[in-house]
C-alpha cells in the first residue's frame, strides 16, 4: 500500500466514523422530538431508531473489521440489516395490530444475523 493510499483510507475511515456519530446524533434528536410530539414509544420512532442503529452498525463494523484478517462488505451489510431490523422491531413491538410487520422485521433481523455470521466467517479466512 502506498503512503497516499494509506492516507486516503485513513481519511475515509475518519469520515465514516464522524459520519456515523452525526447520524446517531441526528437520530437521537429526531427520536426525542417525535417521542415528545406523539407521546412515548411506538411506530413513529422508526425513523430515528433506524438512524441511531445504523450509525452504531457502521461503528461496530469499523471496530470489528480492524480485528479481522479479511474485512468484507457482507459483514457490513449483515450488521446494517441486523441493526435496522432491530430498530424496526423495537418500534413496532408496542402495537398489537402490527403483528404482520413485527414478523417481517423479525425475519429481517434474523436474516441480518445470518449474513453477519457469514461475514464474520469470511472475514476470519486469510
Amino acid at each position: 500500500m502506498t503512503a497516499n493510499a494509506s492516507k486516503n483510507k485513513r481519511v475515509s475511515m475518519l469520515a465514516e466514523f464522524y459520519g456515523s456519530i452525526m447520524l446517531i446524533i441526528i437520530g437521537v434528536i429526531v427520536t426525542v422530538i417525535v417521542s415528545l410530539f406523539f407521546g412515548g414509544l411506538g411506530f413513529w420512532n422508526v425513523f430515528g431508531f433506524v438512524m441511531i442503529f445504523a450509525g452504531f452498525a457502521n461503528i461496530i463494523f469499523g471496530l470489528i473489521s480492524e480485528k479481522l484478517p479479511n474485512p468484507n462488505s457482507t459483514l457490513r451489510g449483515g450488521l446494517l440489516i441486523f441493526f435496522i431490523g432491530l430498530a424496526c422491531l423495537i418500534s413496532f413491538l408496542p402495537h398489537i395490530l402490527l403483528g404482520t410487520i413485527q414478523i417481517m422485521t423479525l425475519i429481517l433481523t434474523l436474516i441480518g444475523l445470518g449474513v453477519t455470521i457469514i461475514g464474520v466467517y469470511q472475514g476470519l479466512k486469510k
Partner: peptide, 24 residues
C-alpha cells in the same frame, strides 16, 4: 475518538429514555 464515542453512547441513551418516560 474513544471519548467522542463514549459521549455519543451516553447521548444516544436519551432517545429510548425519552421514548419510555413520555406518557403513552
Amino acid at each position: 475518538q474513544k471519548i467522542i464515542l463514549a459521549l455519543t453512547l451516553v447521548f444516544a441513551l436519551t432517545a429510548p429514555t425519552v421514548s419510555l418516560i413520555t406518557p403513552y
